[in-house]
């Protein structure tokens, strides 16, 4: 960006004009952009909060805290999402380390496979775990004999969430590690640091913003996951309903204010995620990867 601006200021005036559009084009496109973002994004977000508070603040608060099933859904979401995020975080750091620092056979294949869950429909993601762990599934009978409940229980929620959010941290960290380069790590090693010393004192501090960035994106998606959870949870009210499932159930029961009150929490989470994301981007990091 800065380079582009500099280049423009150096260009003599007659040539600079060659990059400028007619004011009608300028105004028209700007208006169109405002209309598109306004209609597609701003109006829906405002609508969520307006519906949520339509019956007043007291009703809003009551629909969030007064219903035991809603409380349980919130509790379940804030336990399942962090576990899934933590799993993907460890994987993301490991995968980024071997991909960004080493050349090996199958490296390109590994990168492609990391992206795989992005292109799998969430419903299919849920289905595969039902096929593995469900009553009719490959491991279902064995699990039942030994008294483990996976499908229609918290473990399946974690698995499905981890599957859907699998690529986030790794995708963020690979370009960050590649951009930093191995020089400091090589220096640390040659000065006698052990592998883990190098990791904790050099590598991790260098990529901390990237880690945070990957974690908040991963978390937003994990807390909002719907399709995969819908399939593996069995939608048992008060037991396996996460916040998005609870939102759907309240909406289908025509309890619109309550469903929007709960939806407003998820919308707030999304807005905070964007806010933090912009903050981190300002904190010196390379341009975000092209895909999510």
């Amino acid at each position: 960006m800065a380079d582009a601006i500099e280049k423009e200021t150096q260009t003599p005036a007659p040539f600079r004009r060659s990059r400028e559009d007619h004011w009608l084009v300028r105004g028209g496109l700007t208006l169109a952009t405002l209309a598109i973002i306004g209609l597609l994004i701003v109006v829906p977000v405002v609508n969520v909060f307006s519906q949520a508070f339509s019956k007043g603040l007291a009703t809003y608060w009551h629909s969030l805290t007064g219903d035991a099933d809603t409380r349980h859904a919130i509790l379940l979401t804030v336990t399942v999402a962090p576990v899934a995020v933590a799993l993907n975080l460890v994987f993301g750091v490991a995968a980024a380390w071997c991909i960004a620092r080493f050349q090996f056979r199958g490296r390109t294949l590994l990168i492609t496979l990391i992206d795989l869950p992005f292109s799998v429909s969430p419903v299919v993601a849920g289905l595969v775990f039902v096929l593995l762990f469900g009553a009719q599934g490959y491991f279902g009978p064995w699990l039942r004999e030994h008294g483990y409940q996976v499908i229609f229980a918290t473990p399946a929620l974690v698995l499905a969430t981890a599957f859907v959010t699998f690529p986030f941290v790794a995708r963020e960290l690979i370009p960050v590690l590649e951009a930093i380069g191995p020089d400091e790590e090589l220096a640390a090693r040659s000065l006698g640091a052990s592998g883990w010393q190098m990791f904790w004192k050099i590598t991790l501090p260098n990529i901390k913003w990237g880690v945070l960035y990957g974690v908040i994106l991963c978390n937003a998606r994990a807390m909002g996951e719907f399709g995969a959870i819908y399939v593996v949870s069995g939608r048992i009210t008060g037991q396996t309903d996460t916040v998005p499932l609870r939102v759907e159930k309240l909406f289908q029961d025509y309890n619109t204010p309550a469903s929007f009150a709960l939806a407003s929490l998820l919308t707030l989470l999304a807005l905070v995620t964007l806010f933090v994301k912009v903050g981190i981007e300002r904190h010196a990091r390379p341009r975000p990867a092209k895909k999510e």
């Binding site: 701003v42 609508n47 969520v48 995620t273």
Partner: peptide, 25 residues
């Protein structure tokens, strides 16, 4: 800057919320 940041909202907003609010609108 705000509009630029808002472009990413569909990545962060749970799809169920998006569907519900669009249906209501």
């Amino acid at each position: 800057r705000m509009f630029d940041a808002l472009v990413d909202l569909p990545f962060a907003l749970p799809t169920a919320v998006a569907g519900m609010v669009y249906a209501t609108l």
